[in-house]
Amino acid sequence: MQTLRLEVQRLPVFLSALRDEGDLFAPVERLAPKDGRSGVYSLERIFDVAQAHPEALRTILPFKKLLLPPRTVLTRARDGAWEDGDELPIRPMIFYGAHACDVHSLKILDLLFLSDFADPYYQRRREQLTVIGYGCIPDDKCFCQSLGTANVDDGFDLFFTPLEGRFMVTVASARGDDLVRRYPVGFEPSTRDDTREYLDRLKRRTEAFTLALDAHDLPYVLELKKDDPVWEELGRKCLCCGSCSMVCPTCTCFNMWDEMPEENCSERLRCWDACLYRDYALVAGGHNFRARRADRVRNRYYHKQEAFVREFGMPSCVGCGRCIENCPTGIHVVEVFQHVRGDA
């Protein structure tokens, strides 16, 4: 890892130059009626770097939408032969405005989609993705600190942390290094002052967290709380609308089915799915392994905080707070676990 510094006003120059490298994506504010401010952001392709809001804590959909689009044609079949449905080549993509939690979620997606049978559709997009991080200050829905995902030192290409009048620039890959050298817009070696201010900022950031979740032994606790009444309660409260899964950066369940958009042509589609939906575990014979809402809700929490830890050694929740922000009935993941643990 290498650290550099860049004057604040030079960053737009760098970003504008990056548009030659591929499609530039960044958080952009959604338009609201009247004054246009909504405080809600989505990840969009931008043409004017002034549109970017890298400081925005969360976009509605995380950047899994770039790697696993909500709807993909996996295969296309004509006359009894199947072919790859992807339109190749995939264009290079640059995601500007990734936070530490985003980068951690990317590492989790990599674990899932590049291990074992590597997923070619994911892999193609992943290979074209450049990740440029941006230092954030948490709000009342962030709890990445509790899950160990508040800081990150790999898994991205460049990371810009705002300091007074300048950025501390972390270079974490050869690709990031290439970009910095290809566009010498004023990158300089960082100084001791930069490091000091950077560490001060991290300290202030650590203190800014208001939400905390004791996750260190959650799998053990969950193992023992399978029939806790809290799951029934949640089953009554949850709409099973799947919003939390759609916006979750590590929820990657999908459905596959065939469509015939025209005669003699069949497309096999992959679309996002959620384990909260009623037919998620329904088999052809008609048996539904999770017919009850409470079972489905519990399964979602167990998968994040118990099953994933058993499989990969870490939870698949990165504490981004999207599910808290988007749940229409106000189910709060931190409160749920505090409740399960008996803290609340």
Binding site: S42, L61, L239, C241, G242, M246, W272, Y277
Partner: peptide
């Protein structure tokens, strides 16, 4: 699919009418 409109609504990144 037997899934609610929220499924598509979220993927279009609309501001939730309820929230």
């Amino acid at each position: 699919l037997n899934v609610p409109v929220c499924w598509e609504c979220k993927t279009r990144e609309n501001l939730c009418r309820v929230v």
